[in-house]
């Protein structure tokens, strides 16, 4: 069976588990929503909120990513399923792609909802010319986040104290995504007079990041979960 077919099976299985357990709907989404509301209370100024809305959205995405990754590997560890996949000779690259794909799809939904929340809570406005940049930013940033999350989620899964180890590994690694995606969304929203065209180089950075971590993660995931 081809790598992609196995990856799709793994992704479908992960999404079925999520659909059944409703962790994204019942826990991650409220968590992200509460985070954004707290940011609003903490900053307490419409002008400041509108200025920092893109960064706050991506910070909320990063925090939610940690919860999603913990969950994605907790279901594998609960009854030794990841070990069983390894023992059964399932290609680690397929597991990596499958879990990454599932994570990316969940993140995309979350980002769309958080951007909508930013419009409501922070008064952010999306000009028509910024929509394409906004969508492209989300599409290029998400695979990078999923690639990093899956790679380090697999690594941390084998350690005691994985809950505290994961943020230490993931947050520094995704800093380029936070910066790039924030700048690109600022350009898409026209925050502080930024032009839409200013955002495209950041989209380039996000693409390079996603490709680099996608390729690196594909190669490293097997050895990392093997020990």
């Amino acid at each position: 069976m081809s790598r992609w077919r196995v990856a799709l099976l793994v992704a479908r299985k992960d999404l079925a588990i999520e659909w059944r357990s409703r962790v994204v709907l019942d826990q991650v989404l409220p968590f992200a929503g509460v985070t954004m509301v707290l940011f609003a209370f903490a900053l307490d100024s419409d002008a400041v909120l509108e200025r920092v809305a893109p960064g706050l959205v991506w910070l909320a995405v990063l925090f939610s990513l940690l919860v999603l990754v913990q969950r994605a590997f907790a279901v594998e560890a609960a009854d030794g399923a990841l070990d069983a996949l390894r023992v059964a000779g399932v290609d680690p690259m397929s597991i990596y792609w499958g879990k990454g794909l599932s994570l990316a799809l969940q993140l995309l939904v979350l980002e769309a909802l958080l951007l909508a929340a930013a419009v409501v809570l922070y008064g952010a406005e999306v000009p028509a010319e910024g929509v394409v940049l906004l969508v492209t930013t989300s599409i290029t940033a998400t695979p990078g986040l999923a690639a990093v999350g899956t790679l380090y989620g697999g690594l941390a899964a084998g350690f005691t104290g994985r809950e505290t180890l994961l943020p230490l590994l993931v947050l520094p690694a995704v800093a380029p995504v936070l910066i790039g995606a924030t700048r690109a969304v600022e350009s898409a929203l026209g925050t502080a007079g930024a032009a839409t065209s200013d955002g495209w180089p950041w989209v380039g950075l996000l693409t390079v990041f996603a490709v680099a971590f996608g390729v690196g993660g594909s190669l490293a995931f097997g050895p990392l979960i093997d020990e």
């Binding site: 299985k13 588990i17 009854d79 069983a84």
Partner: peptide, 17 residues
Amino acid sequence: RPRVGLLGHSNGLYGDL
């Protein structure tokens, strides 16, 4: 590996499925 089944103390099942 693909032709052998090793079952240890855990069962390798997904509880939500």
